[in-house]
Simulated assay, not measured.
Amino acid sequence: MSDSPEINPWRTLSSNQVYVNPWIQVEHREVIAPTGKPGIYGVVHMKNKAVGIVPVDDEGHTWLVGQYRYATECYSWEIPMGGAPHDEWTADAARRELQEETGLIADELSELMRLHTSNCVTDEQGVVYVARMLTQVGWNPDETEELKVRRLPLQEAVSMALSGAITDAISVAALLKIALQHPEWLTQSEQG
């Protein structure tokens, strides 16, 4: 085992692509584990970055998007999000996804966090933004999406993340980070 956590202790002996589509590539790898033992590893390479947006208005409200998720076979409430090809600025993708899914445009967009979504099997990276100074325009969801959009107090969305009513990892992480960094936003809807 390596004493330095910055040095990759895994050794790849072979890598074979076993599946590919426009969104993912799956590889089967023969490896030597950090313990020195031979093993196998499956890696899902994502062809896009995940981009999430937490819109927050002047009244302390946010928007959630609801949809049935095919892979998990359940309905999911989430922050607005989508994908950005690796050569696209994530802020541009965030603005596009916010407008497509909620009909909102933001005059102010700031990065909240970066994260890996499931780093044991995928290389997916996520970037989350906070959108402020919002204007409602028309929305235009993707042709494969059947969405419900809900405006609610930010505090209620945070409570949903804490209670397990929101289970999407990016949404939970983003809402909890906002609650820690901006507790004043949670009380705006109570005051207004």
Rank of each mutant, 00 (worst) to 15 (best):
Y129S: 02
M160A: 12
A93Y: 04
P34L: 06
I24A: 07
A84H: 12
Q155W: 08
A93N: 01
T62H: 00
V26N: 01
E143W: 06
R150H: 15
G52K: 01
V65R: 11
G83F: 15
T135D: 03
L147V: 07
A91P: 03
H45Y: 14
T122R: 05
V31E: 04
L109T: 06
E184P: 01
E101Y: 00
P85G: 07
G39W: 05
Q125G: 02
H116W: 07
S14F: 05
S15C: 14
L147G: 08
A174Q: 04
T167S: 12
P80D: 07
A33K: 11
T12D: 02
W23C: 11
R150D: 05
R132I: 07
V56Y: 03
G83N: 15
M46R: 11
S4T: 04
I170E: 14
T135L: 03
D123N: 14
D107S: 12
E73T: 06
E6H: 14
W63M: 00
V44R: 06
W139C: 14
E73H: 09
G36C: 09
C74F: 07
P22S: 15
D142G: 12
S110K: 14
E101G: 00
T122D: 04
A94G: 11
E30F: 01
I7N: 12
G164E: 13
L175E: 02
L13H: 00
S171H: 06
I79P: 06
G36M: 08
A165V: 00
L109A: 09
Y68S: 11
Q125N: 11
V44W: 05
A165E: 12
T135G: 02
S4E: 10
V172T: 14
I32M: 04
Q67L: 15
W10A: 03
I79C: 09
R96Y: 04
P34N: 05
A173N: 10
G42N: 07
I170Q: 15
A84W: 15
E88D: 13
P9M: 01
W139N: 13
V172C: 12
T144W: 00
N48Y: 10
M46K: 02
E78A: 10
E101V: 01
T144D: 10
C74I: 01
Q191G: 04
H45Q: 07
M46W: 12
G83V: 14
P80K: 05
T90G: 00
M81W: 09
M113T: 11
A84K: 14
P34R: 01
E108A: 13
V158T: 05
C74D: 12
S14V: 06
L147W: 06
L98R: 00
R151C: 15
Q191E: 13
L115C: 10
D87S: 08
W10Q: 02
L162G: 08
V128Y: 08
R96F: 03
P5R: 04
V127W: 00
